[in-house]
């Protein structure tokens, strides 16, 4: 099962599950806040607004069918995620010669 929610052919739900992502007015990216049931994407985004943004203004909402989400497999940690070890050159702090030079 690669999807976050649960739904299989033995128990098809009347309304499918959607994952909700919200970016607050002060935020830079959408954050997963939870899920809800809705018959289609139009109702999903409206339900998400009612359920997850009652206390905030001017937010951006994304809804995605749960089954559309592919999650990385934590069992494959070793191979799947590149090891940062030995690749310090990817980090700015590696470069010390330019310390003290403005705007770098």
């Amino acid at each position: 099962m690669s999807a976050p929610g649960a739904s299989d052919s033995a128990h098809p739900e009347t309304w499918p599950l959607w994952e909700v992502f919200v970016r607050s007015s002060r935020g830079l990216s959408h954050v997963h806040v939870g899920s809800l049931h809705a018959p289609d994407e139009t109702m999903a985004v409206r339900n998400a607004r009612d359920l997850y943004t009652r206390r905030s203004e001017g937010v951006s909402i994304w809804v995605v069918p749960s089954e559309a989400i592919t999650a990385s497999d934590p069992d494959a940690k070793g191979a799947f995620f590149e090891s940062p070890a030995g690749k310090n050159y990817r980090h700015a702090t590696y470069y010390t010669a330019s310390e003290g030079v403005k705007h770098l």
Binding site: H37, D50, L51
Partner: peptide, 11 residues
């Protein structure tokens, strides 16, 4: 008819 609609009507 559904919990999500309960929230919507209350809003």
């Amino acid at each position: 008819p559904e919990l999500e609609e309960d929230v919507a009507l209350a809003n």
